[in-house]
Amino acid sequence: MPHTETHHERPTLVQLRDVHLSFGSNKVLKGVDLNVRQGDAVSIIGPSGSGKSTILRCINGLLAPERGEIVVGNTPVHALKTEADRIALRKRIGFVFQQYNLFPHLSVLENIVIAPTRILGTDRQTAEREARELLARVRLSDKADAYPGQLSGGQQQRVAIARALAMHPELVLFDEVTSALDPETVGEVLAVIRELVQDGLTCILVTHEMRFAEEVSHEIVFTEGGEIVEHGTPQTIFHAPRNPRTHGFINALRN
């Protein structure tokens, strides 16, 4: 954990208060509270269907909560009414999906430059230079002209990370980004995320990679049944959880 000494002094970037959301009769979020400080990496862990991905989708406004407050920086996300407001929010938040969701008709380079050039109005030269820098950062310099269909899952996911970073986001949401990958390519993606965290990028990760979460996170949040059961430092959650449900989940993973 690179920033431990300043950990408590940094301002809050993301704040969720009593967030409720249901799909039909299925209550997915039942009053979620969450605090993420600037520069923190927060991992959300918990069993499948506990609402982890839904939390991320609420933060960038892909889903609107029925009740509660979501604030990113100074933006009250829960109160955004127009598409224009949500677009302004999403310019500041990167999102990386489990299934990569690259644009299959565009080359790797075009996948990365399309948003900066068309949405932010960055000139083509600058956008392309930055894209190549990002590709170097995710170790895919030689794949700029390839198409997503020609890449492995791990490579596609690293392109997806580069695509998100090209917008210079102040926050990146990672939604189970290694769950769809072959075991041998998981490492290369995690290595990229590890560097981002070390560089001080604010990250919220939904993950099943417990070892990785323990290693890179400033804080771990354990969710179950649409609620935050417990949150704390990786040390507490993984080695001395207070809540018996957390304890049960961690133990089940160990065995």
Binding site: N60, L62, E83, A84, R86, I87, A88, R90, K91, I93, G94, F95, F97, Q99, N101, L102, F103, I114, A115, R118, I119, R163, A164, M167
Partner: peptide, 19 residues
């Protein structure tokens, strides 16, 4: 997911449709 990915990159609906 193509719509979701585009929305997450701050594309509007019509931009997503066009591009």
């Amino acid at each position: 997911p193509q719509w979701e990915a585009s929305a997450s990159l701050a594309f509007s609906r019509s931009q997503t449709l066009r591009w």
